[in-house]
Computed example of a mutant assay.
Amino acid sequence: MPIWNCGGCDLPWPCPTRKRELRAEYAGAPVSLALYLGSYLVQAAEDMPWTPAGALHRRFVGWIRQTARPAQAVQRRSKSAAPDRYERQ
């Protein structure tokens, strides 16, 4: 059965080198990268049924968000745009 090791370095796939390559290849398309790796996650789960699902998730897709850009800061409303309190008439 395949054990999903890198053909170049024999580390678990995706190895650090392949992760860098995937980040570059899918730059600006994180959803496409997640779908691509998700399909491999399903195949690996079939090939390695003894491996815990959480370990496979971390290995195949868990690292994607760690390298994503931080979320944009939420802009605060200015007091002139939204009053602190509404007055009753």
Rank of each mutant, 00 (worst) to 15 (best):
Q43F: 04
W63L: 08
A55W: 04
Q43E: 06
Q66T: 09
A45L: 00
H57N: 05
V61C: 12
A73E: 15
V61Y: 06
I64H: 04
E46Y: 02
V61K: 09
A68S: 11
Q66F: 11
A82E: 11
T67C: 13
Q75W: 12
A45P: 03
K79T: 09
K79W: 13
R59P: 03
S80N: 05
A45K: 00
A55M: 09
A45I: 02
R58P: 04
P49Y: 00
A68T: 07
S78H: 10
A82S: 09
T51G: 00
R59I: 03
P52M: 04
G54F: 03
P70R: 13
E46H: 03
I64G: 04
P49Q: 00
R69T: 11
G62C: 08
A53Y: 01
V74S: 15
S78W: 10
K79R: 14
M48V: 01
A73P: 06
W50K: 01
A73L: 12
A82L: 14
A68G: 08
P49I: 02
W63M: 07
A55K: 10
P49A: 02
V74R: 15
A82I: 09
V61E: 06
P83T: 06
R77L: 14
F60M: 12
W50H: 01
I64T: 07
M48Q: 05
T67I: 07
A73G: 08
A68K: 06
A44R: 06
A68Q: 13
W63Y: 07
A81Y: 04
A55F: 07
A53Q: 05
R77N: 11
D47C: 02
R77K: 13
R65F: 11
R59T: 02
R58N: 09
A81Q: 12
R59S: 01
A53H: 04
W50S: 00
A44F: 02
Q66V: 03
D47A: 07
A55L: 10
A53W: 01
Q66P: 01
T67A: 14
Q72Y: 07
A68V: 05
Q43H: 05
H57Y: 10
P70L: 11
I64W: 08
R76L: 15
V61Q: 09
A73F: 10
M48G: 01
Q75D: 13
R65M: 09
G54L: 05
W50I: 00
K79S: 13
R77A: 15
R76A: 14
A73M: 11
V61D: 03
I64S: 12
G54C: 04
R59N: 01
T51E: 06
Q72V: 10
W63E: 03
P70A: 12
A55H: 05
R59K: 10
P52L: 04
D47I: 00
F60I: 01
E46S: 03
